[in-house]
Design a protein around this nucleic acid. Sequence first.
RNA 1: GGUCUCGUGGCCGAGUGGCUAGGCAGGGGUCUGCAAAACCUCCGACGGCGGUUCGAGUCCGCCCGAGACCUCCA
Length: 490
Amino acid sequence: MEKKLYIYNTKTRKKEEFKPINPPHVGMYVCGPTVYGDAHLGHARPAVTFDLVYRYLLHLGYKVRYVRNITDVGHLEHDADEGEDKIAKKARLEKLEPMEIAQYYSDRYHQNMDQLNIKHPSIEPRASGHLIEQIEMVKKIIDAGYGYEKNGSVYFDVNKFQRETGKYGKLSGRVIEELKAQTRQLEGQAEKLNSYDFALWKNAAPEHIMRWPSPWGEGFPGWHMECSAMSSKYLGEHFDIHGGGMDLLFPHHESEIAQSVAANEQEPVEYWMHNNMITIDGQKMGKSLNNFITLNQFINGEHDFLERAYSSMTIRFFMLQAHYRSPLDFSNEALQAAEKGFKKLLDSLETLEQLKPANESTMDVKSLRNRFYEAINDDFNTPVLMAHIFEGVKYINSVADGHATITEEDLSILRELFPEFINHILGLEPEEESGKENELVDQLMDTILEIRQQARKNKDFKTADMIRDELQKLNITIKDSKEGTSWEIE
RNA sequence: GGUCUCGUGGCCGAGUGGCUAGGCAGGGGUCUGCAAAACCUCCGACGGCGGUUCGAGUCCGCCCGAGACCUCCA
């Protein structure tokens, strides 16, 4: 089976066949969170997107080293000069050590990631643990002639870099001349040669809590440095995939390229991938709009926007129903639709186990399998993949209903294909059904349903319906079928 | 203001120069004691105005609307 994977490369703005630099090894770096607050929906999108990429590359047999950083030295609050380290600011507000905050929120981030069934990256480096690497890289950039020091800070000379390499703005499509005209003139930019130069290292003001010694005095790294330093440390100076949100395209990723080219004389990344943003009821998510929803609020239903709670798996399913490069709009209606669709999908996995083979198949299962691969190989087109999966769901249910048939061979294909795609590649797993794990509950339910069965046999439907209604009040749904009665907790 | 993306049926979301996306919701039916689930079936769309073409959601222009980046942000 041909399994050529095509990836949309932001660098070239088109889909390209994926060819690893050193097969079967693949290096992938994704910009992780800044741990100064709870993860919100916006953090879930890249996490789910690149988890899918990671999972599929593994499925294809690649040996993937997946690096996702944790930013715990904080970015600047406002601008390069007046800014205060975000983490330090929060620390002072809550009278905690900055690293205490970072630990607290990274723990919570990990918890959310587990809830979303995000596979752990191979390496999760912290910016604070790589100060030496960052300082060394700044030195290399200075030695190469692209960094200049001013009052204990080091800046990147964008003009010189552009003049000598012509590589600035290639990723984001920016033009220096336009930047010159458009960059807002902020206060205290006097240290820079040009307003669009960016900091490689920042001198720490006396009140700044997070600070490290460097050849230029006490300070902290510029906010693009960590990704350049850590990706080259763990993946080499030239690696396969770099991912992140579209909002990071400029200036973050553009600057990363500039830093790496300046320090290492080569472009760091083959394939740049960017996921699109999330909106809430058609609006950008923002703290001022009162639609800023954290993942914890989502799972608990504790937000004015939310009609009720939605499970983490519903969120994952919902995100996978859209293509990662399209904007995705969250609304209660859409989420509830996703929830039902997801349940239907999971139910079909159980139904699949019950199917009985026949002499012929009324569906071309091998073609279905091919379409699964065609969809995901086309730049991870999960919406189309989902559509094909639901064709399979319909087929499975039809076989169960007796409207369709399937051969032994096709049945074994489906029994391999469905869990592989749904559980392993898409990472969708059944929700925890705590009650069902409880043996006592199982036995009680058996007893109750036995009593109801007796009532039905005696045509005492009043009692039978009462049992069903009372159970429904406890969110237990029961279904009668020819094989017997099943139940599940909503 | 500049750069860029997008605008699909009641909702969410694919696709694409000519052939049903899919999910959810709604109508009708089958099954069931009744439900639920499932199955069958129907409904229904390509922001507006021009243009290119035998033929355009699909290409081009303009307009309207939304979003991203340019400034911390996933």
